[in-house]
Amino acid sequence: MQSRVIEKAASLLESGACTRVLGWKAGAFFYDVTPAVFTCAQEVREQMVFNPFCGANLSKYLIAESRKEGRIAVFLKPCDTFSFVQLQKEHRIARDKVWAVGVQCRGMCDIDSLKELGLKGVTAVEEAEDDLRVTTLYQEKTISRKEALSPRCHTCKSRKLLDCDELIGDQGQDLPSSRFAQVEALEAMTPEERFAFWRGELSKCIRCNACRNVCPACSCEKCVFDNPNSGVQNKAAASSFEENLFHIIRAFHVAGRCTDCGECTRVCPQHIPLHLLNRKFIKDMNEFYGPYQAGGDFDAKPPMLAFTLDDPEASIITNGRDGQ
């Protein structure tokens, strides 16, 4: 995959089809790759990487990149293409300025998954078919690629590559996914247990805003929480109420637009499972208003923007508790 992606990136620049390529640059340890824009084919061949740790969703960068001169090529995994479509539905990306190359995926790896396995001091990783050969300061170990997967990839909802100009690898299909299992576990708790769970998690928040800034659904030019004129500008939570508030507001604001890409949880330095909040909303919307996938296509009307007389009003009837 690596060589095909790099060759494609270089040839798009050489042929003049694109003036820039959004890809990844290698770091010191294989897993620490950084998204980067390349303008020269030679540099692509020398410095660009595409490895199992290239997990970042590049679609949000296209908001800024598609406003610049010339066309930019981008490499998107299946889940990224859902964000790509959703952002277009929200008129955030100039589609004609983008050349989207869909890259089929078998799940991305994450350094935190390696650490969960008890591997310390990881200095190098090498991909070998379905295994990863990991070198650390203390040992060498071969683990299966599956063990190293990012948690979100275990519950991948779809391998479809939407709205791409060309594909590397085959077109994929929706997958049977158990992604709501954890939400169901939370639903099965008593309100007190659930409150305790979320307080435990959210009390770890340092309000770094990484979850918001990485989120493709959070694309406001000026977030209300950053705006000194909003009256609710909130740099640090002054109380547990404010701590909860930020996350609940954000979850409401992305409801119906969150594609479940999993970036928020991936980037949280405090390992807060933020995706569970959003997934609860997705699950509720599916149940109340019929199945809907944000970014799944260009036509379906988002449940939060549609209205029918027989819409259930669960929150009003039950006063927000236990959503019967």
Partner: peptide, 16 residues
Amino acid sequence: ERLSQSCLGCGSCTFV
């Protein structure tokens, strides 16, 4: 210019 291009402008690096 180039280094900052993909920075998300979050505060993770400063807060940790």
